[in-house]
Amino acid sequence: MRGDQTLVADRELRQLLRTGTFAQVLDHALNVRGLSLERVQRHLAAHGVTVSRAALSYWRHGRSRPERAESLRAVRLLENVLELPAASLMSRLGPPRSRGAHAEPGTVDRRRLWPAHSRLLAELDAPPDSQLRQLDIHEHVQLNEKRQLAEVRTRLVLQALADRVDRCVVYHWNEEPVLPVITDVRYCRLGRVRTNTAAGATVSELLFDQRLSAGECAVVEYVTAYSPGDDELTYYHRRFTRPVRQFLLQVGFAGAAPASCVPYRQTALDAPRRTGGRLWIGASNTAHLVVTDAGPGIIGLTWDWD
């Protein structure tokens, strides 16, 4: 059954189909149908279309929009899944947006990986990513016994590529309504913090103990604390706009270890995941991934208890 009969009973959806944006129609239709993003993701995958749950969430909340060929295929399938009239979502996308100036070779514009954070970065007058090189990143992700994200401990080793570099900027995005908080800052000071709760976005300054000249390095450590959410965490990733010499990601499970855990990479938020082989989880209930000389993009782990 197509959605026409349902639309008769849903006056708000009928109105949105006349005047609403792509995000408004998608969000309302998902609520009306009672479909979770994970369920929609599985349905799309069953039809040979891979879209991350993060990308679906971005589309739903207007933080980004589908533009790639694979993403547009997903939109057409969504119209069927949500029992919407044909082209009701596609017609709201409009012409492709201009990408503007290209990032320097070997890098990705941070607006592509952090589309919900652009306004916050502007408010901070954030320095360009090109001021610092990421030599080493170590993140330890801890889940609680309810399989929810509890905290992330991060250690960064950074090298200045210009003179008078005195800070770095870190980004966070969270689907839960309560945004994370940075605590236990070491070898630096927490500066200004800007948030957009509706978009789930946080941008924070970390002020170095001393101003760096080109070639000098800084080490900073901090903990990102998360409030308990409603959903189990099934993946974690870090987004890189520039190459990193070494990235160590550890995920600790306070309860039972998952049945499987695999690494994955993405070139963009709406790009398909390229997964690797299954990782070993030992007596410590911790999985780890070490990546050296990684290019820009997304690197993470995903796991499953079933």
Rank of each mutant, 00 (worst) to 15 (best):
L7E: 05
V8H: 06
L13T: 03
R18M: 09
T21N: 04
A29S: 09
N31M: 03
L37M: 04
R42F: 01
H47G: 12
V49Y: 01
R53P: 06
A54W: 10
Y58V: 02
E79L: 10
A86W: 09
A86N: 10
M90P: 00
R92W: 08
R99D: 14
A101M: 12
E104D: 10
R110I: 08
P115E: 00
A116C: 04
R119M: 03
L121C: 08
D136F: 10
V141Q: 04
Q142T: 14
L143D: 02
L156A: 11
V157G: 09
L158E: 07
A160C: 08
A162I: 01
D163L: 07
R167S: 11
R167A: 10
V169I: 15
N174R: 15
E176W: 08
V178N: 09
P180D: 12
V185I: 09
V185C: 07
V185R: 07
G191E: 05
A201P: 12
V203Y: 10
L207Q: 10
L207I: 15
L207M: 14
D209Y: 09
Q210F: 12
A214H: 02
A214E: 06
A218L: 01
E221W: 01
E221M: 13
E221H: 11
R239N: 09
P243L: 01
P243M: 01
P243R: 03
R245V: 02
A256T: 15
A257F: 07
A259W: 09
Y264K: 05
Q266A: 07
T267R: 13
L269K: 02
D270T: 05
G277F: 08
I281R: 10
G282I: 10
T286W: 03
V291W: 02
I298N: 03
